[in-house]
Each structure stands twice: as C-alpha cells, then as structure tokens.
Amino acid sequence: MAMAALRREGRRFAPLISPHPMAAIRSSIVPAEEQAPLGVRSISTQIVRNRMKSVKNIQKITKAMKMVAASKLRAIQAKAENSRGLWQPFTALLGDTPSVQVKKDVIVTISSDKGLCGGINSTSVKISKALNKLNSGPDKETKYVILGEKAKAQLIRDSKKDIVLVLTELQKNPLNYTQVSVLADDILKNVEFDALRIIFNKFQSVVAFLPTVSTVLSPEIVEREAESGGKLGELDSYEIEGGETKSEILQNLAEFQFSCVLFNAVLENACSEQGARMSAMDSSSRNAGEMLDRLTLTYNRTRQASITTELIEIISGASALEG
C-alpha cells in the first residue's frame, strides 16, 4: 500500500524534474523576444476589417441622409419659388434700401436648427456680423433677432449682449404662412426697430446659395425717406382710397411686408439648407467610398503578403527536408 502511494508520487514528480528537456538549450540559442505569442504568425488584419465595416456604415448613413434631403428639397423648393411672388410687389412699391442709415437697426439672422448642411449657417452669421459693423456708430444700436439654433450658437460667442430674441423649432411642422406670420408678429411686438435687416441664404440652385439682405423699414422711416426724395420719392404719387390716413396705411403695409418678406426668407433658407445638406452628404458618401477603396487595397495587400510568406515557409521547409 505504501509502495503504491510512493510510486504514484514518483509519477507526479517526474515531469517536474525535466519539464522541457530541449527548452533550456533552445533559449540559449534564440533570443527570447523573437518568440511571438502562440498562434500569431502574421500581421493581424482585424483592425483594418473593423475600420472598413465602420466606414461602410457611415457611408450608408450619409447616403440615406442625402436621399432624405433630396426628397425634402423637392417639396420645399416649389413652396419657396411660389413665395417669391409675395415680396416682389412690396419691393416694387416700397423699394429695397439696404443702404438706409437709421438709429435702431435690428438684424434678423435666419439659420437652420440642424447641422450637417455645409456652410450656409456660418455664411449668414458672417454677413450679420459684417452688417453690424457696417451700421455701427455713435448713438446707434444694433440688435440681433435669431431664428434657428445654429446661428444662436455662433453669435452667443461674441455678441451675447446684442441678442434680443431667439426663435427656434420652426420646422417641426411643414413651414406655412400662418406660422411665419405669428412669428413675425412676435418679433414686431417685442423689438423696437427703425429698420429690420433680414439675412438669409437665397436658393439659386442645389449648389449655389446667395447670402441676401432684405430691408424692411418702419413706417416713420418710410415717410422720412419718401419726403427726402430718393428711391421712395414716388410713393406720394399713389392715391389712397378709403378713410384711412397715409400713416395708418404705411404701418399696415410695413407690418404685412415684414411678414411676407420673412415668410419668403424662411422658405428660401430652408430650401438652401436642404440643398446644402444634399451636396454635403453627397460629397461625404463619395469620400467614404474613396476611403473604403484605399482600405480594401491595404487589406488585400496585407492578406496576400501573409499568404505569400506562409507559402514560402512551407516550400522552403519542404525543400530543406528533401535536400
């Protein structure tokens, strides 16, 4: 019984005495750091594969966004083009006088709520700041009214003090005149102005947007300009029907003009936004495609290199045995 136990013990001890008879000799010949971890014989392609997968997914997303923008653009473009007929008669009657100098300027910057639409928001912010500088001077004040999150985020940085009103979430429902006119009403009631300068991106084509300034004057300024002649001098030649006085008519007209011009501006800007988003998404899916091509090339090269190495190993091993 005791002998059996000892024999068992001896069997257990046996591997401890000489675990790898050759290991000690081999390690003295080959430096230890050249031994790669078990099972890894070539460069791993897993990182490249993961990268390819994520680029492919991003490309899918940008392609989908492009399609969405394209379909939204079509709906809104018709609306924007139809709405141009609203401000044209006003410009014919009251003129558009961007050079007029008044005490209280209000700059209405129109931007989008969402990003990923190229540079249209920074363009309108840039134009607003330029207009602010152009019209600044002693005993003058310029205020901002901002439509949309993106211009707000940009103007907060250096013109915080000049912001009086911020309006957002415009495009939750499809844009319509009632909404914009209620909005215009809110601006009229909350802001004192001599001239409103509306800044927006006018839609020209899917890739071209013109930053545009529309000026709406308050009735007093319209009268002042009409008396001093100039572009508005012809206003006196119009006859006024009904019992209302000229100043009343002018006030109504100025209010209605503002809501119409704003309606058109909001639509044009929304249209430009979709167009810009479409072209931005188009170019980003193209870029993703190019990136994918490059990655595929690298991946295939690495794969082929490892196959070639393996083949060389096998062949040289075989020829070594033969020889």
Partner: peptide, 28 residues
C-alpha cells in the same frame, strides 16, 4: 396645413430667459 409651432426666448443683458413654446397643437 396651417399649423403653428415654435419656441421663443427673450434675451436680456446677454442671458436667455426660459423659452416659451407657441403652438396650436395642444398634445405636443
């Protein structure tokens, strides 16, 4: 077709007041 929905916030001295939402759809 003619639905109204937007958020207004007034700013005084560089600080926004809490936005009020102007909407005619009460369920939102």
């Amino acid at each position: 077709r003619e639905r109204v929905h937007f958020a207004v916030s007034k700013w005084t001295d560089g600080k926004p007041e809490t936005p009020t939402i102007r909407t005619d759809t009460p369920d939102v």
